[in-house]
Computed example of a mutant assay.
Amino acid sequence: MPPPQTVSSGRLAPESVFDSLNNLAPEDAIYVKESTSTVTAFWQRVEMRHPGSFFFPAAGGLGFGLPAAVGVQLAQPDRQVIAVIGDGSANYAISALWSAAQYNVPVVFIILKNDTYGALRWFSRLLDAEDAPGLDVPGLDFCELARGYGVEAVRTETLESFEDALCRALDASRPILLEVPTTTIEP
Rank of each mutant, 00 (worst) to 15 (best):
P77G: 10
P77Y: 08
P77R: 07
P77Q: 09
P77E: 05
D78N: 14
D78V: 09
R79P: 04
Q80R: 15
Q80N: 09
Q80L: 02
V81E: 11
V81Y: 12
V81H: 10
V81N: 08
V81M: 12
V81K: 08
I82T: 04
I82M: 07
A83R: 02
V84M: 13
V84C: 09
V84L: 12
I85F: 02
I85K: 00
G86I: 00
G86F: 00
G88S: 06
G88V: 02
G88Q: 05
A90W: 00
A90G: 10
N91E: 03
N91S: 07
N91Y: 01
N91F: 01
A93V: 09
A93P: 05
I94P: 05
I94L: 15
I94C: 13
I94R: 06
A96W: 02
A96G: 15
L97Q: 08
L97S: 07
W98Y: 11
S99R: 07
S99T: 15
A100K: 10
A101D: 11
A101N: 13
A101F: 10
Q102M: 10
Q102L: 12
Q102E: 12
Y103D: 15
N104C: 12
N104F: 04
N104S: 14
N104P: 04
P106Y: 15
P106I: 15
P106Q: 14
V108L: 10
V108E: 11
F109A: 02
F109R: 01
F109Q: 00
F109H: 02
F109P: 00
I110C: 03
L112R: 04
L112A: 03
L112V: 06
L112H: 06
K113C: 06
N114W: 04
N114E: 11
N114G: 08
D115A: 03
Y117G: 06
Y117H: 10
G118P: 01
G118K: 00
G118D: 03
A119Q: 01
A119N: 00
L120N: 03
L120A: 07
L120S: 01
R121A: 06
R121Q: 04
R121F: 00
W122P: 00
W122E: 05
F123V: 15
S124Y: 06
R125F: 14
R125D: 14
R125E: 15
L126C: 08
L126M: 14
L127S: 14
L127P: 01
L127A: 11
D128Y: 15
D128L: 14
A129D: 11
E130V: 12
E130P: 02
E130L: 09
D131Y: 09
D131G: 05
